[in-house]
């Protein structure tokens, strides 16, 4: 385990993305309204590929709302309205001709509370490949499931009980199962909405390790209320406050020399 962490850390520093390369996700002038409430105000943000980007800010600042715009989960809320433009690989995801089902296969999501389906561990991971028709055969599907469980670092723990219910796992394992479920459809972007807030510190550490590994292959956007976590896992950080994106930049810079007074106040614990 220890060696793995070291390797990953070294990889993380190596993989510093060239700011000049094309961003994976581009948000321009994004506004979100919940009925009368203006929840997100003119947000502009570029998210680099194959790196972890953290969204931080006090409760109700709009960071989760922004996250849910990226895979259009806000569509499931009837009163929610989104304006502006979000592009993934230069393709507008709010384009009416784009299919939301396909979009969500490309943009996976992990939720605050682990939400495994009340099915077997195997079925949980196989769910996505099955509905999208990825697997041609049973062996194909087995391969995808086992591979995804491996990538989520869960396989060794559950390999003897793949037919047991996903809800029988511990909280941390459940969350890694949810991550395995998300990566089983091989998405390009993984959104994580405070994935560790319901977990104990040991489980949290495991998830954080996992994120480090995953950023090799995936673009990860994580919402977190823990600044330490943001500092530990992310390449870049964006600070939201009252619906505005206040400041965005390299994580190191954000925490050492914030440009905005509000960022300063937040990271020094004046409010939160």
């Amino acid at each position: 385990m220890n060696s793995l962490v070291q390797v990953n850390q070294s990889e993380a520093t190596d993989a510093t993305p060239d700011v000049g390369t094309k961003p994976k996700v581009i948000a321009r002038d994004v506004n979100v309204y919940y009925g009368e409430k203006h929840a997100l105000k003119a947000v502009n943000l570029d998210v680099p590929a194959r790196a972890v980007t953290a969204l931080i800010g006090p409760s109700g600042c709009g960071k989760s709302t922004f996250l849910r715009c990226i895979n259009r989960m806000n569509d499931t809320i009837p009163i929610c309205r989104v304006t502006g433009k979000i592009e993934i690989d230069e393709r507008d995801i709010y384009d009416p001709t784009l299919d939301v089902v396909q979009l969500r296969a490309r943009v996976g999501m992990v939720f605050q509370k682990p939400n495994p389906f009340p099915k077997s561990i195997y079925e949980n991971v196989a769910y996505g490949p099955k509905i999208h028709g990825f697997a041609k055969s049973k062996t194909d599907l087995d391969e995808i499931v086992i591979g995804s469980l491996r990538k989520a670092g869960l396989f060794e723990e559950v390999k003897d009980r793949l037919t047991e219910s996903g809800t029988s796992l511990s909280g941390g394992q459940q969350q890694r199962l949810c991550i395995a479920r998300a990566i089983a459809v091989n998405p390009e972007v993984i959104l994580m909405d405070e994935p560790c807030s319901a977990l104990d510190p040991i489980a949290t550490a495991k998830i954080e390790e996992l994120m480090d590994e995953l950023q090799e292959n995936f673009t990860i956007i994580i919402v977190t209320h823990s600044m330490q976590q943001a500092a530990r896992v992310s390449e870049r950080t964006a600070f939201f406050h009252l619906g505005y994106l206040v400041e965005e930049g390299r994580t190191e810079d954000m925490f050492t020399k914030p440009k905005d007074q509000r960022t300063q106040d937040y990271i020094t614990g004046r409010f939160g």
């Binding site: 089902v101 969500r104 996976g108 939400n115 996505g128 509905i131 479920r181």
Partner: peptide
């Protein structure tokens, strides 16, 4: 949360 999980998978 179960619904969200499923929709997020593209179901």
């Amino acid at each position: 949360s179960l619904r969200d999980g499923s929709y997020a998978m593209g179901a």
